[in-house]
Amino acid sequence: MRSQNEFSYGGDATVKRPELNKEVSDKDWDNFVYNRKSLRGKHKELWQHISGCRQWIKVERDTATHEIFKTVKAHEDI
């Protein structure tokens, strides 16, 4: 078990980059770059073990209680 102090928040894990080499509207690009939901409850997030093994992971966390439900490697789906 490692302390939360060793981890760094890396953003919303549900955001997907618009496909490469395809037209993207300004609104879609704006949503991808800037707009995020501020959910209360279960949320999928990216975290990095920045002061440890420096790996990225996906975490399902409750933003109200900080309870962690599941963690997987960054390339895996929760």
Binding site: N5, E6, S51, R54
Partner: peptide, 8 residues
């Protein structure tokens, strides 16, 4: 013995 870790 012979363990290592990265931390703060």
């Amino acid at each position: 013995n012979n363990n290592c870790l990265n931390s703060v």
